[in-house]
Design a protein around this nucleic acid. Sequence first.
RNA 1: GGCGCGUUGGUCAAGGGGUUAAGACGCCUCCCUUUCACGGAGGAAUCACGGGUUCGAAUCCCGUACGUGCUACCA
Length: 527
Amino acid sequence: MNAFVVIANYRIQAKNYLCRMSKVRVRFAPSPTGGLHLGGVRTALFNYLFAKKNDGVFVLRVEDTDQTRYVQGAEQYLIDCLEWCGISPDEGPHHAGEYGPYRQSERKSIYREYAEQLVQSGYAYYAFDTPEEIENLREKLKAQGKYNVQYDFQNRLEMRNSLVLSKEETESLLKINFPHVIRIKMPRNEYVHFKDMIRGDIEMQTDGVDDKVLLKADGMPTYHLAVVVDDYLMKITHSFRGEEWLPSAPVHVLLWKYFGWEKHMPQWAHLPLILKPDGNGKLSKRDGERLGFPVFAMEWNDPANGKIKGFKELGFLPEAFINLLALLGWNDGTEQEIFSLEEMVDKFSMDRVQAHGAKFDFEKAKWFNHEWIKRSDTEKLKPNVKKIFEENNITITDEEQFERVIELVKDRCTLLTDFVQQAGFFFMAPADIETSAILPKWNDNKNQFFAELIRVYLMMNSWDVIDIEHAFKELAAASRLKPGELMLPFRVFLVGGKFGPGVFDIASIIGKEETLKRITYGVTLLK
RNA sequence: GGCGCGUUGGUCAAGGGGUUAAGACGCCUCCCUUUCACGGAGGAAUCACGGGUUCGAAUCCCGUACGUGCUACCA
C-alpha cells in the first residue's frame, strides 16, 4: 500500500516536472526608452497574449545596460503601464521569479563570464581599438568608395585585437585593464537559417553582418549577448520582438549555436512595426506632439521634452487601449473588432499576426474607445468619470443622480474626458451661456413665454420628464409659439450650449429648483 | 550603396487559383432626433507595375518600382 502511494506521488511529480520543462515562457525585454511607447506596449501585449493563451509565463526582463540613455524611473513607469493595461508580468520586477535577477545591470558578472567563454572557444575575440581607430577605419573605407563600413572579416586582421596580437600582448593589455570590448567573430560566407513564427523560413548570409560588440568596454553587455544569455538562463521558450531586430537575428542564432545551446533556442517572432500615420517611418516619441495624439500609454515625463500625456490621461479606457493596439496587426479572421483581454487571450494566434507594418490611425483609436464606453456599464465607468470630474472641480453630491447621468450620456462620449462637457452641467450650472446661439431670434414673445414657464413650473406638483414636457408644449401652444423655437433657448439656458441629451431629461434630473434658477439667469442675459 | 522584411480603397483589413473582392474607421447622402450625438439605410473609393505558369491569378513564380528596417561600445 505504501509502495503504491510512493509510486503514485513519484509519477505525479515526474509529470509536473515535465510540464514545467515544456512550459511556455515568453520574455518581454523593453529598452529603457523605446519600450515605452505604442510599439513597445503592443509587443508586451502580444507576448502576454501568447503566454496566457498557452498557459505559460510572461517574463519581464528590464533592459538598463545602456547607461547613457537610461532614464530614471523608466522601469517603474513601464510596470505601471503594464499594470494599467492589465498585462502585468508573472516574473520579473516586481514579481521577481526564480530565474532572477531580472535587471541586466545586476547580471553584469554573468555576461562577462559567458563572453569570455566564447573567446576561449574561438568564436569571439578581444578588441582594443580606440574609438578614434574605429573612426579611422570607417573614414578609410569610405575613402575607398566602400559603402559597407563595418568592422568585419575584411578588415579585422588589420585592427588591434586578440586575433592579430600575440597571446602575450593580449594578456598584458588585459592585465593593465586597457579598455577593450569582446566582439563576435562572424564567419565568412555562411548561411544562417531560422524560422520566424510570422514570416516562416528565413535565410541570411553572415557576410552582411559585422563583428558585433558583445561586451562593451564598461563591462555591460550589448543586446546581442544579453538576449541570448538571459533567454537561456531564464529558460525562455519564445522570443518575440520588433521587426527591427530581424537583420541581427543571425548573430543571435549563431550565438545559441556557439554556446552549444541550440536545443534550447527559443522560437522567434518578429512583430511588425507601428508606422507614422502621415509620412514614412516608424512611429516615434516626437510624432505624438506633431500630429496631436498620444504615443504613450500613460503620462511620460521625458527628460528632454517634459511631461507628455498618454492615452490614459486623454480619457482612454485601458480595455479600449489594448484592444486597438492588438487590432493593429492582428485579427481573429472574423468581423469581430471589439475584444476583451480574456477574449483576446482565447482567440490569439501568432499566425494571424500581420507581417507588415501598420500606420497608426487616431480616428480609429478613438472609435475603439467610444465603443468601449458605450458597452461599459455604469459601475465600471463611475470611478473613471468621478476622477475626471474631480480634476475639473465638479463635485458629485447625489450618487444615484450620478449613475442616471452616466447612463444617459455615455453614448455620446468618445473619450472619458467628454463626460465633463456632456455631463458636467448636471452638477454645476454652466459657466458660459452661449447666448449667440439664441440672440438673433430672441424676441419679446419668447421672453414672455419663459416668464410664464417659470410660473407654470413653479405650480407643478410632479417633476417627471413627461409632465415637464407636457407643460412646456401646452404653454407653447397657448402662446402660439412653435415648441422647436423654444427648445433651443431652453437647452442653452440649462446646459450652456447646443449639446447634451434631451432637454426635458436634463430638467428632470437637475430638479425643479435648479431648472428655474437657470432659466431665470439665462433670460436676464438676453435683456 | 549593401542586406533583410513587406505591398488588397485615404487608414486597419478578410481572402491563400474560379467571390458581385467581406467588414471596420474616416468621408458623403438620406432617415430618426425640434440641439449634438447614438442608431438605421445608402454611396464614393482597392488587389503597386511588368512578365510568366494556368482554361482561369488579388491569390503561385520571376523581375521592377515603392515602402520600411538594419547597416553603433543604441536597443
